[in-house]
Write a protein that binds this DNA or RNA. Structure first.
Length: 551
RNA sequence: GCUCCGGUGGUGUAGUCCGGCCAAUCAUAUCACCCUCUCACGGUGAUGACCGGGGUUCGAAUCCCCGCCGGAGCACCA
């Protein structure tokens, strides 16, 4: 195969497996158009060799996502997979997902978060080549710690945190710094064996106690924690490495070539370089990005704060439409690729960035507008009798796709329209898909279907639903729940399908309730006041639950 | 207090390493118009920025200095 030119290969493939060829073409088209858009700068120090025959294997771009599984992801967390995943695609690189779960106490892992995070990565459009958990690797860390002690690079220290801090700030070594290697070995083993109480002793990396940057002086590599790790497999360990040690060792052992992470870890690289020097390893290339803030959310983007709000009942869960989480955006019908695109657009600059939701919405609109069927949803409805109209309205399923046909909406003698759309007495309005009516004596008198009144006389076009046969809808939005009524037919959409409620916005169908009686089952409503009237009566409490995406 | 990093239109980004082609790129946003039986999509146009002050230079967004502003770290968190 290798001696065929690419055209020849294509022909051959086309003959043998036409669908495979189509897939290849689609792939190529995507990569060519907007797969990457080179909005990210090239990575530093990447070998140019197009992995030709003599290309070295170790020139592969290898990166890692290093999430702390202390909760499901919020929007800010999407930046890591978005950027790293995009680079993986560009360089045909390798991507590891490594759960840095080495703190069973302060940032205690959430057992559900491991899977939630992997789902989130998939949602954003990427798949790791390998997944590992730091909590599975304690013996490895111990092994390297012992080696480090033997090389004179670490010592056990029984100063209290406060005592050490004082000495460190003064640039003075603590009394334990020069103890014998064998003593450190013995004491470290005691930490591992569980013979040391928390706070009694730590293992420090010997750096430079007079280093101008106090953040780098003799940092802690291991400490003792009595709280068992939530993962069964790791619950017996008591001596845990801190991030700088664990991550530093793992990055080397997994041959990471490029580290991309937040600016909060700027000093981490400098600390870890001491480690790498002791082992005579080469430190990977590092890129840092700054903090991002996202407008439009009251809730702070912090895993622990969101968790608190959920526990307090202020949010319904991680996918509450008001939460700034990936699960929430997903439920609202925002595609992961739209988030990725917006995140990649932020680039990797180290200064702070404000990400506006409109960037995500614009990217999403671009993706779903064409596929989303149109439908009418009337909020805050006002009922009007219609006199003399056809029996059904027939607006198109999609304005740009005649081939998708029309929706047949029965009028039934009366319609509901939004109160804001009610024309003054004597004025006209065009009920989309039905025709023009004049508001007279509290009713709509049908005038006709000559579209020129819209084109030439500026009669406003509005949406409407039949008063009787419309279906109740609960629209959940980031600003709160909204009640309304949608045209019949909305109940035929499956959960997860996306529609555009004309003049309202895009939404994702979440559930089709076949409620029986029990008129007040819908206690999901903590409505924000602008609830429409609950037209009871008709047929039980069937209704559609939809989540609002954006306009 | 100590140590780092950064400041380009409302927002994000390109350009800064190797000063002139930058009266500054692209996207989004906003407004207008066109299209349209949606305030969607699409099209056209407009709006709008080099933190401040010195210096080097024929010439600075780009180099140097000072200032101001913002962020990060100095945890037995990640």
């Amino acid at each position: 195969m290798s001696d065929l030119d690419s055209e020849g290969q294509e022909k051959r493939l086309g003959a043998l497996a036409p669908d495979r060829l189509a897939a290849l073409e689609a792939e190529a088209a995507e990569a060519g158009s907007d797969g990457d858009e080179r909005s990210l700068p090239d990575l530093p120090d990447v070998a140019e060799s197009e992995d030709g025959e003599n290309g070295e294997k170790d020139e592969e771009v290898r990166m890692r996502l290093a999430p702390n599984p202390n909760g499901p992801w919020h929007l800010g967390n999407a930046r890591m997979p978005a950027v790293i995943g995009t680079y993986k695609t560009r360089y045909d690189g390798w991507m590891l997902c490594r759960f840095d779960d080495t703190d069973p106490e302060t940032k205690r892992p959430d057992l559900e978060a491991y899977d939630a995070i992997r789902d989130a990565i998939t949602y954003l459009g990427f798949e790791p080549d390998e997944v590992i958990r730091a909590s599975d690797r304690l013996p490895t860390y111990y092994e390297y710690a012992r080696e480090l002690i033997d090389r004179g690079g670490a010592y056990t220290c029984s100063c209290s945190a406060a005592e050490f801090s004082e000495l460190k700030n003064a640039g003075e070594p603590c009394p334990h710094r020069e103890k014998a290697v064998s003593d450190s070995r013995t004491e470290f083993d005691a930490m591992i064996e569980g013979e040391t109480d928390p706070g009694e002793r730590v293992l420090r990396v010997r750096t430079d106690i007079t280093h101008p940057n106090p953040a780098l002086r003799d940092w802690v590599a291991f400490r003792v924690i009595d709280t068992p790790h939530p993962r069964e497999a790791a619950s017996e360990f008591r001596c845990w490495p801190l991030l700088d040690f664990q991550s530093g060792i793992d990055d080397h052992l997994t041959s990471i070539s490029h580290i991309i992470r937040g600016i909060d870890l700027q000093d981490s690289a400098k600390r870890q370089r001491f480690l790498y020097d002791y082992f005579d390893w080469e430190y990977p290339e590092v890129i840092h990005w700054g903090r991002i803030r996202i407008d439009a959310y009251d809730v702070p983007m912090s895993t622990s704060r969101i968790k608190g709000l959920i526990e307090a009942g202020d949010l319904d869960g991680w996918d509450d439409p008001r939460a700034p989480t990936l699960a929430s955006l997903r439920r609202r019908g925002i595609e992961g690729e739209a988030i990725t695109e917006a995140m990649v657009g932020l680039g990797t600059s180290t200064n702070d960035a404000d990400l506006s939701m409109s960037a995500i919405y614009a990217a999403n609109r671009e993706r779903i507008d064409d596929e989303a069927d149109r439908a009418f949803l009337v909020r805050d409805g006002v009922e009007k009798t219609v006199i003399g109209s056809p029996t059904t309205g027939e607006p198109p399923v999609h304005p740009n796709h005649d081939e998708r046909g029309v929706r047949e909406i029965p009028v039934g003698g009366a319609v509901c329209i939004e109160s804001e759309d009610v024309p003054s007495n004597g004025e006209r309005v065009w009920l989309k898909g039905l025709g023009c009516v004049r508001h007279t004596r509290n009713a709509f008198e049908f005038i006709g279907t000559d579209i020129d009144v819209v084109r030439e006389e500026g009669v406003p076009v509005i949406h409407w639903v039949p008063a009787d046969e419309s279906r109740p809808v609960l629209l959940r939005t980031p600003e709160g729940d909204v009640h309304g009524r949608a045209e019949p037919g909305i109940e035929r959409y499956e959960p997860s399908e996306k529609v555009q409620f004309e003049r309202v916005g895009f939404a994702r169908i979440d559930a089709q309730e076949r409620g029986r009686n029990g008129a007040s089952n819908g206690d999901t409503d903590d409505g924000t006041g602008d609830a429409g009237e609950e037209h009871e009566g008709d047929r039980g409490t069937d209704r559609t639950i939809a989540y609002y995406a954006h306009s």
